[in-house]
Amino acid sequence: MSVRVLIADDEAMIRAGIRAILDNDDGIEVVAEAADGAEAVDLVRRHRPAVVLLDIRMPRRDGLSAAAEIRRVMPETGVLMLTTFGEDEYIVKAIAAGAAGFLLKSSDPRELTAAIRAVAAGAAYLSPRVAHRVITELAGPRLGTGAQARSRVEALTDREREVLALVGEGLSNAEIGRRLFLVEGTVKAYVSSLLSRLGVRNRVQAAIVAYEAGLV
């Protein structure tokens, strides 16, 4: 079954370029395109895609506001933010809004499809080209220092730490289950527990804590 995707970007050429890449992948179906955040929210309600690609800065309603609304009304839709260098402050806000991943617009096409599949599978995705900046320059001051992260992780059980490390690697629940020989439902329970115990809202924030604590 194909991964249903919605593309939201105010630049027509960007939308066309992304669609051209995705149309060449038999496992991905572009169900709609939006030119602004307000239209993206409406189309997500109508088409119920598995993943929405959201440009951070758009007219009428920006990607941050749209991401928060999509997570509220369609929590089963994964939000993958499209960003450029120089938008660090928006990335932090997008994490808080519940985005599941971040991808540079200049990324390799193979990374685009990999990110879509990861988010569709319920995993967090940080582009390797922005992950280090997010973790070292942005996450630390907001989610805690390395020492604070290690202290928080120490409160977890051994199994929860194993699961957290794999969340930090960007694995989905199914992939974690195969790695640890657990059923997917059990992994989901572990992830829910560790999110609560770490005091984070989503897998991206959990992955950052894993990085800060040295688990990844």
Score class of each variant (00 low, 15 high):
182 L>E: 00
15 R>D: 03
79 V>N: 13
72 R>D: 07
41 V>Q: 11
18 I>Y: 11
84 T>P: 00
50 A>M: 09
79 V>P: 12
167 V>I: 12
41 V>F: 08
147 A>T: 14
198 L>E: 01
21 I>Q: 09
28 I>K: 08
71 R>V: 01
131 A>H: 08
206 A>H: 05
38 A>Y: 13
19 R>Y: 08
90 Y>M: 04
139 A>N: 04
173 N>D: 09
18 I>R: 05
32 A>D: 14
146 G>K: 03
200 V>G: 07
120 A>Y: 11
105 K>E: 01
52 V>E: 05
108 D>E: 12
156 L>T: 05
200 V>P: 06
66 A>N: 12
108 D>N: 13
98 G>L: 03
174 A>T: 12
150 R>M: 10
52 V>Y: 08
76 E>N: 14
100 A>P: 02
138 L>P: 02
194 L>D: 00
173 N>V: 03
98 G>R: 07
85 F>H: 15
163 V>P: 04
164 L>D: 00
79 V>W: 11
144 G>M: 03
23 D>P: 00
6 L>H: 10
122 G>N: 06
74 M>C: 15
105 K>I: 01
45 R>M: 05
166 L>T: 02
8 A>F: 08
201 R>K: 14
19 R>L: 08
208 I>M: 14
86 G>C: 09
189 A>I: 07
157 T>G: 12
80 L>N: 13
181 F>T: 14
170 G>H: 11
120 A>G: 06
111 E>S: 04
112 L>D: 02
57 R>E: 10
100 A>H: 12
177 G>Y: 12
45 R>N: 09
131 A>Y: 11
135 I>W: 11
152 R>A: 11
65 S>M: 03
98 G>S: 09
42 D>H: 13
117 R>P: 01
216 V>G: 03
11 E>S: 06
78 G>E: 00
39 E>D: 13
200 V>T: 04
167 V>C: 04
61 R>Y: 01
4 R>V: 00
202 N>P: 07
192 S>W: 04
36 D>A: 03
139 A>W: 09
6 L>K: 11
86 G>I: 05
198 L>S: 06
149 A>T: 07
168 G>T: 04
133 R>G: 05
145 T>Y: 10
167 V>L: 05
154 E>Q: 09
